[in-house]
Simulated scan of single mutants.
Amino acid sequence: MVQFTPVKKRISIVIPMYNAENYIEQCLASILYQPLIKNDYEVIIINDGSKDGSLIKATEISKEHENITVFTQENKGVSAARNKGIDLANGKYIWFIDADDYIISDTANHLLTFAEKHDLDILQFNKIRTESRALNKAATKHIDISKIEIFNGKEYASKVDLNDSCCTNLYKKEFVMSTKIRFIEGKVMEDMTFNAELFPLAEKITHFPIDTYRYVINPNSIWTSKESKAFRKSIVDFIFMAKKFSDIIEDYKINNIGTDIINLKQQEMLFNVSKRLLTSDFKIIEINAIINDLSRNNLYPLTPYKGKYFLKKLELFLFNRKLLFITAALMYRLLKRPIDYFIIRRHQRNREKLIKKTIVKFD
């Protein structure tokens, strides 16, 4: 029989922290300024072996707020930190927030109250990806709560969504503990498999349409880093998770859960593999071996893209024709410098437009 820690708080906010000395103060401030009664919530910071001043900053802030607790472990990765947070949490609900992100003002209590009122196992909400640290107002206006429909997990996973991120969900702790599902440690994309396994098991789940979470694009994360070791690891982990999704898809079929959404998520993973392989430092012989391995696992070729984006359609067309893709990868390696310069310049221009547009829209 599963033993549960006695519930003492309405919610536990779990923050995995690694080398976030420049961000942790804002992250905590965005939580502390929420209109929540101090005794109703706790903040659990898991310092994952930070090598900068993160631990010092977090500890100093915790001394001023008795509902903030800092735990330290050797570097094991974000999944291990979140798993530890699950075990330590004393709240009825758990909310994972990354140390370099933040939440907007006056939304946490609305989410929590709605989840409590309907006794939800999972409550999903929205995020905005941004490079700005000043988007403190919600774009969502005039939410008609009476029109929010409550689903069971199978129906939600089949027809509505499988959230990519664990940071835009409230999870009932008792529910998570009862499933024994945890984050896969040492891999990226751990959020997607966690949610894909967890969502169908929920008795009550829904989406609250407010953009509460600010996912800040961090140039030092494994998602954006071009450093060779991190970039190669992201490709290997994408492939690992795509294979894991194949197992989950089979479970969905056995349990009569629709697979359209999860199939699409798996295709998105593999599309990211193709994009990253093209610009990686993998040798051509290694790329050939990777594609052959995907083929043996029924993950290649990908479903043809039918959307409106020409470049995505072209990339998938190339990837699905191994000889053409390997030729394109070889050409990229020969012309890497001018191509990278063009891509970086285009990204900088798009980023400047996005920041300007976003600030005008939300501030």
Rank of each mutant, 00 (worst) to 15 (best):
A89I: 01
N126P: 05
I150V: 08
K127F: 14
E116I: 06
K92C: 05
N126M: 11
H110P: 02
H118T: 00
I145V: 14
A138F: 06
N136C: 12
A139T: 15
L135Q: 04
K117T: 03
L123G: 00
D100P: 09
I94R: 00
H110M: 14
D98N: 15
E116H: 02
F114K: 09
Y93S: 06
R133H: 14
I150H: 05
T113R: 08
S132K: 11
N90K: 11
N109C: 12
Q124H: 06
A99T: 03
F125Q: 04
K127I: 09
I97M: 10
N126E: 13
I128K: 08
K147V: 02
A138N: 13
A108F: 13
F114L: 11
K137A: 11
F96P: 00
I97C: 10
L123Y: 01
I103T: 05
I148K: 08
F114S: 08
T107H: 14
I150G: 05
F125V: 01
I148M: 09
L88A: 01
S146H: 13
A115Q: 01
H142C: 14
N109H: 14
N136S: 10
A139H: 12
R133S: 09
A134V: 13
L123I: 04
R133G: 08
A139L: 15
N90F: 09
E149F: 14
T140Y: 04
N136P: 07
F151A: 01
T107I: 12
K141I: 15
W95F: 12
D100Y: 14
A89V: 00
G91K: 02
F114V: 10
H118V: 02
S132H: 07
F151Y: 11
A134F: 15
K92Y: 05
F96Y: 05
I104M: 07
D101Q: 05
G91Y: 02
K137M: 11
N136R: 10
T130W: 07
L111Y: 07
E131W: 07
A134P: 04
E131G: 12
K127P: 04
K137H: 15
F151V: 03
H118F: 09
Y102H: 10
L120V: 09
H118K: 02
A115W: 03
L88M: 03
K117N: 04
T130E: 07
I104T: 10
D106W: 04
L123H: 02
T140I: 06
W95G: 02
S105L: 11
W95E: 04
R133P: 03
F151I: 04
